[in-house]
Write a protein that binds this DNA or RNA. Structure first.
Lengths: 158, 158
DNA sequence: TTAAATTCAGAATTATATTCAAAACATAAT
DNA sequence: ATTATGTTTTGAATATAATTCTGAATTTAA
């Protein structure tokens, strides 16, 4: 399930670097950048997909264009027993919930939510969160402005 | 800079929905899904890019495959004057820093960082963060396990 | 050192991207 | 209503790319 047993060489890392920056790069352009035959590059890409090194090709959309300007972080205490993630799993099913993390310290979960505005967030909390058992308390932090937001990894040279 | 003045119709939303799910869908397949001519679809996609509705096509890479398993959230107080974001802008330049948010409440910034392990995080804090002036204090929350992590938006039907 | 497996290049085929002109459609103004 | 204007769509043409396959080269392991 993790990164164990997958060995990525220099070429793989270059592919990942190029595709992380632009997922729609053509295989032909990839091949040109890497100075390899398109067929060889394609084989590697397929292998990276198949080994789940590549999880998804996705499009980053301007949230403002869809009127989704509210971001909030919510920390939650839950009464899930040790070794049980039930609340987290239920939270993860909600599409507006972008991230669910189990964290060290007092609170059990830290989640990130994106909605159109604060009243939609309230609706979400009232209608969806409230249906999840074992949530004991929540503390919501509203984001005023986002300066940077991406998930790109730092890819080593080698 | 925001979502104002951009009007997206049903077809645009479908394009965004399909491309958010799979950025590498071919234009031909897009056209088939939408039952439109490829040329018409291409025009729309170009327009969405040009209007910055589409920000980027990116590849989600398994962090484990690159040995980047540590996620931390750090809240920071900074001495930036009101209306100045200097610390945030400097933080945003650090590649391991994936998110920088200005938040309401006591702390000024909430940032999300991804590194290979806790000692690399310590290095980062010692070497990079410490060089940023005006950071008064930090409180780091280590993620033990991530249940969900994506940035996909909820795209309305219409 | 050989055998097996992996990776690669090149050619052939199939499919796709892209461009363009013309038609269709929508909008606003007269 | 009717014309004019601008936008969007289509369909055809052509340029480019994806994909498959075979054999050669390289690597790995026995």
């Amino acid at each position: 399930m993790n990164g164990i047993d997958i060995i990525l060489d220099k070429v793989d890392l270059s592919i990942l670097r190029l595709m992380q920056e632009n997922a729609r790069i053509s295989n032909a352009d990839l091949a040109r950048e890497l100075e390899m035959a398109p067929s060889a590059v394609l084989e590697r890409v397929k292998k990276l997909e198949q080994k789940s090194v590549i999880l998804q090709y996705t499009t980053r959309i301007n949230p403002g264009a869809l009127q989704q300007n509210l971001v909030a972080f919510i920390s939650m205490k839950a009464a899930d027993g040790l070794g049980s993630n039930n609340a987290a799993i239920e939270l993860a099913k909600i599409p507006e919930v972008q991230e669910v993390h189990c964290i060290a310290g007092d609170d059990c979960y830290l989640i990130k939510v994106r909605t159109s505005d604060s009243s939609t967030l309230m609706d979400l909390m009232r209608n969806s969160f409230s249906k999840i058992p074992n949530i004991l308390s929540t503390r919501t932090t509203i984001v005023l402005e986002t300066v940077k937001e991406q998930q790109q990894l730092v890819i080593p040279e080698k």
